[in-house]
Design a protein around this nucleic acid. Structure first.
Lengths: 110, 110
DNA sequence: TTATTTTATCGTATATTTGCGATATAATAT
DNA sequence: ATATTATATCGCAAATATACGATAAAATAA
């Protein structure tokens, strides 16, 4: 983009967008699901299951970490990842409070 | 990307990712909020409030329409947009069923 | 020590997104 | 009929995201 205008929006708008952005690729959804289903996952297990190269999976994991959707710990030569449910709870709340205001009312148009 | 691998993932993963993708920019969060707060919005009202050019806002609206997050109707020379709450409800459900499986359990690591 | 294993990072190619001005389109007003 | 108004679309430039192979780093095994 010519210039990035993201900082012209407020904090809440950006937080919600960043959270959504972390989930906005099917690979990351699949990774989250793997970790959730197994309750924890070492990186290699995810790489085995996904149709992506190891370096690509590592990149996606990094983004999920950055968005605080997962936590990671090193275990010997491998790394273990878990879902950070606190973040999910936080955004489920934000999400609801953000968009349900007029929900029960009848629409004025459309 | 070298090649797009999105179709290597399943339908649910892609649906959730597409939904999240629609909300993954603060401008689109702000647009949704405007529409939700006013219960309906003509395009011009949104353009007035956002720090973006009319053509850019129009593009964001198009993406929100494509993802079925809003509905639009033409009213004379202007267009009116409303939140499509059915879509939000649908994904709130998907979202929960997708990620709360191990929520109540204690984490194995991290 | 050296080899192996596992994961992260770097560099790079390509695709997509974002943003804008200019222009098209379509309804209304003069 | 012409001008005005509101929105959508086009074309382009710049920024980001996605993907991979190659390589680095760090722990363990031989």
């Amino acid at each position: 983009m010519a210039q990035n205008k993201k900082d012209e929006f407020n904090k809440k708008e950006n937080e919600l967008a960043n959270f959504a952005n972390a989930i906005s690729h099917p690979a990351r959804v699949a990774i989250l699901k793997q970790i959730a289903d197994r309750e924890s996952c070492i990186c290699g297990e995810i790489v085995e299951v996904l149709p992506l190269a190891q370096s690509t999976v590592s990149q996606h994991l990094k983004e999920l970490l950055k968005a605080d959707l997962i936590k990671g710990t090193v275990e010997g030569t491998s790394s273990c990842y878990c879902i950070n449910y606190k973040t999910f709870e936080k955004f489920e709340k934000t999400f609801t409070e953000f968009f349900t205001k007029a929900n029960s009312n009848n629409p004025k148009c459309c």
